[in-house]
Amino acid sequence: MSTTELAWFKSSYSGSSGDNCVEVAVRTEAVLVRDSKDTHRQALAVSRDAWSAFTALAAGSRL
């Protein structure tokens, strides 16, 4: 499956002016992360366990 066939979700924390945007797509074996302004670049792939740990840490931080 190519990255164009995936369901990409933009972060709710992305800037309202179109900058600092991150998109995520979930696959069976990995979570893909990409810059929404440059969708032709290869996405970063991380394991689902690593993504879960990252989001749990991020949710606990005070940004």
Rank of each mutant, 00 (worst) to 15 (best):
R48G: 14
Q42V: 14
W51M: 10
E29D: 15
V46Y: 02
H40G: 14
E29Y: 00
A45R: 03
G18P: 04
L57Y: 10
D35P: 03
R62W: 08
Y13N: 12
F54M: 07
Y13E: 11
Q42C: 04
R34S: 08
F54T: 07
T3I: 09
V33A: 00
T39H: 06
L63C: 14
F54I: 06
A58S: 13
Y13Q: 12
S17R: 08
T4E: 13
T28M: 04
W51A: 09
L44E: 12
A30S: 12
V26Q: 09
S11W: 01
A7P: 06
L32P: 01
A43K: 04
L6I: 08
F54K: 05
V24M: 04
G18L: 01
R48Y: 04
S2W: 00
F9V: 15
T39Q: 12
D38I: 10
L57H: 14
R27G: 12
K37L: 05
M1D: 07
F54E: 10
G15E: 07
S47Q: 02
S47A: 04
S16E: 12
A30M: 02
M1R: 05
A25E: 09
T4V: 07
V33W: 00
S52R: 09
G18W: 01
R62V: 13
K37F: 00
V33Y: 00
V22L: 10
R62D: 15
E5P: 00
G18H: 01
A25N: 05
W51L: 07
V24L: 08
G18D: 05
L44C: 14
S36A: 14
V26S: 10
E23Y: 02
E5L: 13
S61A: 15
L6T: 09
E5K: 07
V24E: 06
G60M: 03
F9A: 11
S16D: 10
K37E: 10
A25C: 08
E29P: 01
F54N: 05
A56L: 09
A7V: 15
T28G: 09
S14A: 08
V24I: 13
G60I: 00
E29N: 14
D38W: 00
T39M: 11
E23S: 04
A30V: 09
L32Q: 09
T4R: 11
V46I: 10
L44R: 11
L44N: 14
F9I: 13
D35R: 04
A25Y: 02
V22E: 03
G60E: 09
M1G: 11
D19C: 05
S17G: 11
V24N: 08
A7D: 15
S17K: 09
A7W: 07
T39I: 12
T28V: 13
L32W: 01
L44W: 00
A58I: 08
D19Y: 00
S36L: 05
S14Q: 04
A45K: 03
V33D: 05
V33E: 03
F54A: 08
A59W: 07
N20L: 01
V22A: 00
L32D: 06
A43I: 02
S61E: 14
C21S: 11
R41S: 15
L63S: 15
S12E: 09
A43R: 03
C21D: 10
V24R: 02
S2M: 06
S11T: 06
L44Q: 14
F54L: 10
A25I: 03
H40I: 07
G60H: 08
D49H: 11
